[in-house]
Design a protein around this nucleic acid. Structure first.
Lengths: 208, 208
DNA sequence: CGAATCGTTGAGCGAGGTCAAGAAAAGTGG
DNA sequence: CCACTTTTCTTGACCTCGCTCAACGATTCG
């Protein structure tokens, strides 16, 4: 709230920890993330937290809002975020193609979530983190945001814990063991994956 | 395949363990489940299995198929299933209202999955099973398929394990402890919930 | 009635959690 | 640029929830 800056008619910016949407809001806009990372999450009453979606540049947040659906879970910026705004109300008048792109994005979000259900239900700590890093790298890659074998990694180990259903302490230990197995290089918010297919295999993911 | 019986132009039946859809199929129809239970799942190469969605009477399976999306995970009948068929091709010509109902169903599926991510990532065994039983009861209730405090429960303990990310053995032990805590009565494929709000609380769910 | 499938129980173990403390980075303000 | 604070990362010791393995009843079904 408060100090969010609208920098143009159809663009908006958020700082880390600012909410893009709160539970039970009725959002006016669907956002298309242009820059920065955000996440959807839920907090249980005793403080346990689980992140249920990661929004990266190019993602829509969230297509179902055009139907008048209210967010079931809050969405918060993890970094500085710049997004373009698609007014929910106008959707009927929009080109068929844009509508279709929105529903298609919704379907992909569902598929990604199904994959995460498998990970949280059945994968080990190392497999979970490998899955996370593969997914981030490959999604960024599709948006041209990787540089050779490297990409940005603004997540803290606590964020990773809340994504993978682990504790920060165990994320730390698991990252160490992945480093010493040469699966990843990770330092100062920057990730390098020397062998992506090896990491996919460690994640128990099907070969690309 | 083989012995699936089309009982009318726009209805279809499946027996337990028959596939409603396989990975990489291009489905001709979206199904609306009229009777019976089905699930979507994924199998890892070493046999670990996770169920990622449960389809109950009244559910659409799966709305995104009208976009030409292929199933990322197979869908299989858990009981005898009767479903009506909505041809994917015809969707453009259908009443706006039916299209909207389909996207709305997709959005609800996404919300349910987000809730399950929280459960698999952060809840204990007892909370997971309590969540599962609450969700089933409440969804059946909305379709008028509950009888007082009771409803059908065709899932085996192994199905429950694959839904909750636990082992069948631990599901068994957890169910025992829920029985002795008087949270549930469960026998011969039939569930009774003496106090739904107590069960919701045990599941760490927000009060209805 | 025989064969699967499903449910139940016990004993032992291990992956990941908890608690706690200190080191290293990263902001913040002067 | 430098103190100072806060956040993040790292490590150790210990513990527990849920898993594994195995055997045996109980149901269900052909």
């Amino acid at each position: 709230m408060g100090n969010l800056a609208i920098i143009a008619d159809d663009h908006i910016q958020f700082r880390p920890h600012q909410y893009l949407a709160r539970e039970a809001d009725r959002p006016e806009f669907v956002y298309r993330i242009e820059e920065g990372w955000a996440c959807r999450f839920r907090l249980l009453n005793d403080g346990r937290r689980q992140i249920t979606a990661l929004f990266l540049p190019g993602d829509y947040c969230e297509p179902q809002w055009v139907l008048g659906h209210r967010p079931a879970q809050p969405i918060v910026a993890l970094t500085n975020v710049r997004a373009s705004c698609i007014p929910c109300a106008s959707i009927g008048n929009r080109p068929f193609d844009q509508q279709r792109r929105l529903w298609s994005a919704l379907a992909h979000a569902l598929d990604r979530q199904s994959d995460w259900l498998v990970t949280l239900g059945r994968r080990t700590a190392l497999e979970r983190i490998a899955h996370l890093l593969c997914e981030i790298f490959e999604r960024l890659s599709r948006s041209g945001l990787t540089y050779g074998q490297q990409c940005a990694m603004p997540l803290t180990q606590m964020d990773m814990a809340d994504l993978t259903g682990l504790t920060p302490v165990h994320v730390n230990r698991t990252l160490q063991s992945m480093r010493s197995a040469a699966l990843i290089e990770l330092q100062s918010r920057w990730l390098r994956i020397p062998d992506l297919s090896a990491l996919r295999q460690a994640a128990c993911l099907a070969p690309a």
